[in-house]
Amino acid sequence: MMEQKRKGAALIREIARTEPPHGVLAIWYLGQESVIVKGDGITIYVDPYFSGDLDDGDWRRTFPAPITPEEIQGVDLCLITHEHDDHMDAKTLPWLHRSSPKAPIVAPACCKPALLEMGISAPGLLTADDRQPMELFSKLRLTPIAAAHEQLERDTDGGPRYVGYVLELNGVTLFHAGDTLVYPELIERVGALKPDIALLPINGRDYFRRQRGIVGNMDYREAAHFAREIGADTVIPLHYDLFAVNAEKPGHFVDYMYEQFPEQKCHVMARGERFVYVTPRAFLQP
């Protein structure tokens, strides 16, 4: 446990010290769909899931979170894709809010009651609506994208239940898909925003998992074709390794990508890794 805390503290220090130049984003992978993105001085946590029990029956974590909730520091913005526990973590978000009380938390409208129950203050909650892009910190354009997990669902006001996010920051455009299947409008909407990098779930779905109440996503083949269709420069797979009952082998994704689209760049991130992405436009002459 002490060794894990040392690793978590080191990771937090690494994030604080990392200052990507223009045309660059730094991304840290923390398991499932939890990532940290940093660029232009802004540190963004997406779906931070840092709790969970390593011995919790079928839903035990296969590895501990690289950082613990109480180690969280220096958050400027938190993005939540939907209300499922492994994306909107009631044991992580209160710590995040206490450590960084000025950091807005963006989530679909249906998440607000649960976030308020966690002690998140209402002024810090922003609604993720796919009809309303946001301009934040005068540096970040954030576009929520409706996700289909496994269906497109909207509330009575037309707001999406599940979302992904397109972040335009520091000269780079990043798409975090959240939990979703591929549907035609998703290809059109994301493709129009020309993402440099796409973070996509690959765990798929099947009848037997659905019978157990496990809601599915695109599989590794669909993720590969989707990345190609939207014109992403680089694709990173997510949502494949945290729970044995809902897992996929990222090697299948890499093999399929190599066989079908050998010129498509992809990267499988190690747990806690910092991946420094440089857009091809970074070295173009003005």
Rank of each mutant, 00 (worst) to 15 (best):
V245Q: 09
Y256G: 09
L54R: 07
P48V: 12
A9W: 15
I67D: 02
S100R: 03
P250L: 09
C111W: 07
R61K: 12
C78V: 14
K194A: 14
S34W: 05
D86Q: 09
R61P: 02
L11G: 01
E153N: 07
D130Q: 05
V75Q: 00
L125T: 05
A103P: 00
L30F: 14
Y49W: 15
F275C: 05
E70M: 06
E168P: 02
Y29H: 07
Q285M: 14
L142N: 03
M1F: 14
L125W: 01
M1R: 13
I80W: 03
L125Q: 05
A224K: 02
I197S: 00
R161F: 15
R221F: 09
G52L: 00
P113N: 08
V37T: 00
T81R: 05
T127Q: 05
Q132D: 08
Y240V: 04
D129H: 12
F253D: 02
V172P: 01
F243P: 01
R274M: 14
G158E: 11
G191A: 04
S100W: 00
T92S: 13
N217S: 10
I27L: 14
I202D: 02
Y29F: 14
M88D: 05
Y258N: 13
L30M: 13
G74C: 08
H97F: 11
D206L: 12
T180H: 03
T127M: 07
W95G: 02
L199A: 02
G57Q: 07
A244G: 06
R131N: 09
A109S: 08
L125M: 11
T18K: 05
I36F: 05
V276C: 10
M1C: 12
V276S: 13
F50E: 02
H87A: 09
K265L: 14
T234E: 10
I15S: 02
V106D: 01
V182D: 07
P113R: 06
E229I: 04
H97Y: 09
I187F: 10
M218W: 04
C266Q: 02
E259T: 07
N217V: 06
Y240S: 08
H149R: 09
A147K: 04
T18F: 13
G158M: 11
